[in-house]
């Protein structure tokens, strides 16, 4: 009996591992991402996604998450060299774009990276990085106007821009409301596709309503 159970389990495991080494790996990486506590953990998760990506070669999602995690380290570590983080993340987005053409998620990520680099020296960087951020979001809208994350990241950027500059909490409020509305109907293409942002949009909307 014991042997039979063991054999059955071996069999199941064998099937699972053969069919979905990729899914298993991604699952483990997502789990690791959820458990992240420090910027260093996040960097390790980014590296894990990148290892999956480099092994698979035809999947864009691991590159997407590798770039996303790298980007997050830029905020988690207050002393991060945001330019180095940005260049690394951008290089990963470029690799993802080779596999997946014209995907709004990747354009959104480009906007996020540009905004992160802009914050290093907003005064002198606005012209270049601000333009990059806007261009990326325009392309994201063209690719998928119903992606709620477009309005989330746009709002996140604009709410911190003073009213007279065309930003502010009122602008943020509109964008987050629109984002939340879209989240209601948004369905990721698969369970692995990006689905983050709902909680963030709610939180930021609350901030704007204060």
């Amino acid at each position: 009996m014991k042997n039979l159970l063991f054999l059955t389990m071996m069999l199941i495991t064998g099937i699972v591992s053969a069919q979905s080494k990729y899914e298993a790996g991604m699952g483990k990486a997502f789990e690791q991402m959820k458990a992240v506590k420090t910027a260093e953990d996040m960097g390790a998760t980014a590296a894990f996604f990148e290892r999956i990506a480099d092994t698979e070669k035809d999947k864009w999602l691991p590159y997407y998450y590798a770039a996303y995690c790298n980007y997050l380290t830029g905020w988690m570590n207050p002393n991060a060299d945001k330019d180095a983080v940005g260049e690394k993340a951008k290089a990963l987005v470029v690799k993802a774009e080779v596999i997946e053409k014209n995907n709004s998620e990747l354009y959104i990520l480009r906007q996020m990276i540009a905004v992160q680099q802009l914050t290093v020296d907003p005064m002198s960087r606005f012209q270049t990085y601000g333009a990059q951020a806007n261009e990326a979001l325009e392309k994201a809208k063209q690719a998928d106007p119903n992606n709620p994350r477009i309005y989330l990241v746009d709002g996140q950027y604009k709410m911190n821009v003073p009213d007279a500059f065309g930003g502010g909490k009122e602008v943020g409020k509109k964008l987050f409301t629109k984002s939340l509305e879209l989240f209601k109907t948004f369905k990721p293409a698969s369970e692995m596709h990006p689905s983050w942002g709902f909680d963030q949009a709610e939180k930021l909307l609350a901030q704007c309503q204060q």
Binding site: M9, M10, T13, V16, E23, A24, G27, K28, E191, W196
Partner: peptide
């Protein structure tokens, strides 16, 4: 992420450790 189904990776881990 919470929508993700976590595949039985841990199971594999145990078995082939």
């Amino acid at each position: 992420m919470k929508k993700l189904v976590i595949l039985p990776a841990s199971l594999i881990l145990v078995l082939v450790s």
